[in-house]
Structures are given as structure tokens and as C-alpha cells.
Simulated scan of single mutants.
Amino acid sequence: MTEATQTIERGIQLTPTAFKHIKMLQEQQGDRELCLRVGVRQGGCSGMSYMMDFEEPNKIQDTDEVFDYDGFRIVCDPKSLLYLYGLVLDYNNAMIGGGFDFTNPNAAQTCGCGKSFGV
């Protein structure tokens, strides 16, 4: 069981390390109101690739799923959530291969870099 799943169940989980890093990046953007949009798009070496970026709260759609982490929001469109439900987002500080890590229970295959997947 990861650290993220020990807390409230959410469709997209954040480990404490990922949460800390995302909050740091949010502060660097200079806007504490920004939310994180997570989704998928066609492409990548395994067929689909992960995408995430900060987004203004006024761009959240009525159909989006919103997960709250102590006032910080993760937003995901319903089509992406079909592929991402249960995703655990972690962060790794390694000099080689570091960055965000996606553990997706829906992925039948992943590429070597871990940034794309197939279902």
C-alpha cells in the first residue's frame, strides 16, 4: 500500500512527496489558486501519454472531476479519468530518471520512460 492510498480514497492519488513538489511548482508560478489538470492524449511510444499542467480555476468544466487535497485541487476530464482512475502520482528526486512517476492500474503496458502507456 502506498502512502497515498492510506488517506482518503480519491480517483487520482498523490504521494506526500509529489504533493510537496507540486506545491513548490505552484508557488514558483506565483499563483496559489492554480489547480493541476491531469489527463491523457493520443501519442507516446505506448499509444497514450500522460499530460499535466497548471490551470486557472475558472477553466474547470462542470463535467470535470475535481479532487481536493487540503485546498489544492487536481482536475481531470471524464474521458481521461476512464484511463487514470486509481492513478498514483509520485515524485522522484533522482538525478537520472527523476521526475514525476505515474503508477496506473489501468495500463496494460508502459514505455521505458514511464510517461506513456497502453490499455
Rank of each mutant, 00 (worst) to 15 (best):
D62P: 03
C113A: 09
P105Y: 00
T63G: 00
V66I: 15
G44I: 04
T7E: 15
T2Y: 11
S116F: 09
G112L: 14
T7F: 14
G39M: 05
Y85Q: 08
G99N: 11
A108S: 12
K59T: 10
A108F: 07
E55Q: 13
V40K: 00
Q61A: 07
G11I: 11
A4S: 13
E3K: 12
A18R: 04
P105M: 01
E9R: 14
G44A: 07
A18S: 06
L84Y: 07
C111Y: 08
F117C: 08
C111T: 08
R73W: 08
R32V: 03
Y91F: 15
C45E: 13
A18G: 03
F19D: 03
C111S: 10
D64W: 05
R41W: 04
T15F: 14
F67A: 01
D53I: 00
M95W: 11
G114T: 01
F72Y: 01
G86E: 03
A4F: 10
T110L: 14
L81E: 01
T63P: 03
N106S: 11
Q109T: 15
C113F: 08
Y69N: 00
E33T: 10
C45W: 07
Q61R: 09
T5L: 15
D77W: 05
E33Y: 05
F67V: 03
E56V: 02
A18F: 07
R32Y: 04
V66N: 04
F100L: 02
F100S: 00
K23H: 10
N104K: 06
Q109W: 11
K115F: 15
R37G: 00
D31Q: 08
D70R: 12
Q6W: 07
L87H: 02
S116A: 11
F117A: 07
L14G: 02
A94E: 15
V66L: 09
P57Y: 01
L84Q: 05
Q6T: 08
Y50Q: 03
A107W: 08
K79Q: 06
A18K: 03
G97L: 13
H21N: 04
A94V: 09
G97R: 09
A18H: 04
G98E: 11
L89Q: 02
C45A: 12
M51C: 08
I12S: 04
I8S: 11
F100A: 00
